[in-house]
Amino acid sequence: MKAMLCHAYGPPSGLRAGELPEPVAGPGEVLLHVEACGVNFPDTLLIEGRYQQKPPLPFAPGGEVCGTVAALGEGVAGPPIGTRVAALITWGGFAEAVAVEAARIVPVPEGVAPAAAASICLAYGTVLHALRDRGALQPGETLLVLGAAGGTGMAAIQIGRLLGARVIAAASTAEKRAACLAQGAEAAIDYTAEGWRDELRALTGGRGVDVVFDPVGGAQAEPALRSTAWRGRYLVVGFASGEIPRLPFNLALLKGCAIIGVFYGEFARREPEANRALLAQLFAWVAAGRLAPHISATYPLEQAAEALEALAARRATGKLVLLTHAAPSPAGAAR
Rank of each mutant, 00 (worst) to 15 (best):
P27Q: 15
S329G: 07
V39L: 08
L162N: 00
T317L: 09
G318T: 10
L163K: 13
G125P: 07
F239D: 07
A113I: 12
L311Q: 01
A258V: 15
A305E: 11
H33P: 07
I259C: 07
A102M: 05
Q52T: 11
E101T: 15
T142L: 01
A123P: 06
A326F: 03
R246I: 15
V212C: 06
A187Y: 01
A149Q: 12
A113Q: 01
A178W: 14
E271G: 01
C257V: 06
G232M: 05
G238S: 00
A118K: 12
R134H: 06
T173Q: 03
A284F: 03
G10M: 06
C180E: 10
K54N: 15
V237H: 07
A287I: 05
L137M: 01
L308M: 02
I244Q: 14
G150D: 03
P23I: 02
A156G: 09
G147W: 10
P223W: 00
F283Q: 00
R231Y: 05
E110M: 00
P12F: 10
R226L: 13
A136L: 13
T83N: 06
L15V: 00
G62K: 01
A326R: 07
A187I: 02
F263Q: 05
A25D: 10
G238R: 11
A312K: 13
I260M: 10
A258E: 15
A326L: 08
Q138F: 06
I189T: 13
E309I: 06
R276C: 15
V34F: 05
V85A: 02
V65H: 02
G14Y: 00
W230I: 11
A312P: 06
G232L: 13
I159C: 11
G73C: 09
A312W: 12
V145S: 08
G318K: 03
A130E: 04
T152H: 14
A187H: 10
E35C: 11
A77S: 04
G67I: 01
L291H: 02
R207I: 02
I260F: 14
G164I: 11
R207M: 06
A36M: 10
R50P: 03
L301V: 08
E271F: 15
N40V: 04
G232C: 05
A17Q: 13
Y299E: 08
N250I: 14
G160I: 08
G125Y: 08
I47A: 00
E22F: 09
A169H: 13
L253Y: 04
V106G: 03
R134C: 09
L225R: 10
E19I: 06
A313N: 06
A130P: 14
C257M: 05
A86G: 01
L320R: 02
L311V: 01
V30N: 04
F59A: 09
C121D: 09
A174K: 05
A280W: 04
L131D: 12
